[in-house]
C-alpha cells in the first residue's frame, strides 16, 4: 500500500510515527525549515477547494510531510447514507495527496430536515444498535471501496446517550472492524470526556476498561488532546483547546502498554498554541512511546497496525 511506502521514506514505520494536527495559523512555520514530527494531519474539508491557493498550499505541505487526511463530515453512521458528491470530493483529494491514513468518526451527519437534505455540521452520536451497526457497515464498506483503501474510524465524544442502544460502544466498534476490515482511531481524550460526562467511576479506570475491550491489532492511530475544565456537574466539551491533559498522558501510557507502539497525533484545534509548543507535545508523546517500548523490550515497529494491514 502506498501509505506504508510514504511512511518508510522517513525511516519510520507507520506504527511509531508521531504527528500534529496542522491548522491554518501554523502553515507558514510548518513549511519553514525542518521539524521533529513524522507527519501532519489535515482536515480533509479544508482542502476541498479545487482552485485558488488552497491546492498549492496542500502541495507544499505534502512536499514536506506525509499527510494523514482526517475528515469530519463523512457521517459514517448516517442512516440516509453518505452524500455522493462529498465522497467524490474526498476521493479526488485522496488521489491527489496519497495520505498515509484516512480517518473519520463513528457518528452521523447526513439526514433530512423538513423534507430537505441537511448536513448536521457536527459529529452526532450513534445508537449502538444492530440496525445502526448495519448502516455503519454498509457505509464504511462503500467508502473503502470508493477510496480503494482501508480507513480508520474514530470513537466519538458524545453529549447525549440513547436509550435505544443495546450494545456497548466497544462491542459496536469491534463488530464493525470484523465486518469491514476497517481500523480504529482511538481518541483517548474522547474516552476521558465521555467517562467524565457519563460514568460514576474514575474516568481513567473507565477509559482503561474501554481500551481493554478492543480487538487486537485493530488500532491504527491514537489521538491525544486536552479540554477546557468545567464546573462540577457540567458536561465537559471536547474543544481541543488545551495542552494534552495529565489524565490523557496517563491513559496514553496505559494504551501503549496494551497496544504497543501506535501512530500518535496531537490534536489541538482551538485556542492554538505557538508552533514550538505544539511540537513539544509531540516530542513528549514520542518520548513516552520510546520509554514504553524499552519497558516492553520490543521493537517499536513490530506491533500494532502494521500487522493488521
Amino acid at each position: 500500500m502506498s501509505c506504508l511506502n510514504t511512511a518508510h521514506t522517513r525511516g519510520e514505520t507507520l506504527s511509531s510515527m508521531v504527528g500534529v494536527g496542522l491548522r491554518h495559523p501554523h502553515y507558514k512555520e510548518a513549511l519553514l525549515g525542518s521539524s521533529s514530527i513524522d507527519f501532519v494531519e489535515v482536515h480533509a474539508e479544508n482542502f476541498f477547494a479545487e482552485g485558488g491557493i488552497v491546492p498549492a498550499i496542500l502541495d507544499d505541505i505534502a512536499q514536506q510531510y506525509p499527510i494523514s487526511l482526517h475528515s469530519t463530515s463523512m457521517g459514517l453512521g448516517s442512516a440516509v447514507g453518505i452524500n455522493r458528491d462529498y465522497l467524490q470530493r474526498l476521493k479526488r483529494l485522496s488521489q491527489k495527496v496519497t495520505p498515509i491514513l484516512i480517518s473519520d468518526h463513528a457518528c452521523f451527519t447526513w439526514s433530512n430536515l423538513n423534507g430537505n437534505a441537511v448536513h448536521a455540521g457536527d459529529l452526532l452520536p450513534l445508537e449502538f444498535s444492530q440496525q445502526n451497526l448495519q448502516v455503519m457497515t454498509e457505509n464504511v464498506d462503500k467508502v473503502q471501496q470508493v477510496l480503494g483503501r482501508k480507513i480508520l474510524v474514530e470513537n466519538l465524544s458524545s453529549y447525549v446517550e440513547f436509550r435505544f442502544s443495546n450494545m456497548s460502544e466497544t462491542e459496536f466498534l469491534t463488530e464493525l472492524v470484523n465486518r469491514t476490515g476497517c481500523g480504529l482511531l482511538v481518541d483517548l481524550n474522547n474516552l476521558i470526556v465521555n467517562a467524565h460526562n457519563f460514568s460514576d467511576e474514575s474516568s481513567l479506570q473507565t477509559a482503561s476498561q474501554w481500551l481493554q475491550q478492543l480487538p487486537t491489532g485493530a488500532v491504527g492511530e491514537i489521538h491525544l488532546a486536552g479540554y477546557t475544565p468545567v464546573a462540577e456537574n457540567e458536561l465537559i466539551i471536547d474543544d481541543h483547546s488545551q495542552p494534552v491533559s495529565d489524565e490523557c498522558w496517563s491513559l496514553y501510557r496505559t494504551a501503549l502498554k496494551q497496544l504497543g507502539a501506535v501512530t500518535t497525533l496531537i490534536e489541538w484545534d482551538n485556542n492554538l498554541p505557538s508552533w514550538p509548543v505544539l511540537l513539544d507535545q509531540a516530542t513528549k508523546a514520542r518520548s513516552i512511546m520510546s520509554e514504553i517500548a524499552i519497558m516492553k523490550n520490543v521493537p517499536m515497529s513490530e506491533e500494532g497496525f502494521l500487522n493488521a494491514i
Binding site: 474539508e45 457521517g75 452524500n83 441537511v118 448536513h119 455540521g121
Partner: peptide
C-alpha cells in the same frame, strides 16, 4: 439555507 454539502465553505 440548510448546510447540505459537508463543507461549510
Amino acid at each position: 439555507e440548510l448546510p447540505a454539502s459537508g463543507d461549510w465553505a
